[in-house]
């Protein structure tokens, strides 16, 4: 039997859809240069000085492809969107903690989030604020999608 969605359902679904699309755009923008220049991204990960040095390259490669896979899923596989959003949320949370730790340690390096250029702006509290905004969007998409399904 075909079910009709209420205007509220549709609004919630639309909001969560567009937030997911926005997250895709960000994930693609972030993943592009990391895929092309894995050495540069590994250097950015190393500069946090948070991981054992032996794990830097593997972590850098894994994060790059995790972001890319999540972006593709958010864009093309709606049934898996929730799973991808949870992963993006976890990645953002870890990154935000790493950036905040870096700032507290007085780092002068960029976060490696969207640009790997040596001329990229060093991480600062604005980076943390931006990440908190992205985490909020992610949570909104998750809640929006969940409620739309429930209704």
């Amino acid at each position: 039997m075909k079910t009709t969605r209420s205007p509220r359902d549709r609004t919630l679904y639309r909001i969560s859809y567009w937030i997911a699309v926005y997250m895709v755009g960000l994930a693609l923008a972030a993943g592009y240069s990391k895929i092309l220049y894995p050495d540069q991204f590994a250097l950015a990960v190393f500069r946090y000085h948070l991981l054992p040095y032996q794990l830097v390259n593997i972590t850098a490669l894994y994060i790059t492809w995790l972001e890319a896979v999540c972006a593709v899923i958010l864009l093309f596989i709606p049934r898996w969107r929730r799973a991808a959003l949870w992963i993006v949320l976890a990645l953002l949370a870890v990154l935000t903690v790493a950036v905040a730790t870096g700032i507290l340690h007085g780092t002068a390096f960029a976060c490696g989030c969207f640009s790997l250029s040596p001329q990229a702006r060093p991480m600062d509290w604005f980076t943390v604020l931006r990440n908190c905004g992205l985490i909020t969007l992610c949570l909104m998409a998750l809640v929006g999608g969940h409620r739309a399904r429930k209704d």
């Binding site: 895929i35 092309l36 220049y37 894995p38 050495d39 590994a42 190393f46 040095y53 032996q54 830097v56 390259n57 593997i58 850098a60 490669l61 894994y62 790059t64 492809w65 995790l66 890319a68 896979v69």
Partner: peptide, 19 residues
């Protein structure tokens, strides 16, 4: 994908590097 991409990447990086 990370394994496959790094194996075929022109700028391949070592899995473990002594940073």
């Amino acid at each position: 994908l990370a394994v496959a991409a790094n194996l075929g990447h022109p700028r391949r990086i070592p899995w473990v590097q002594n940073w």
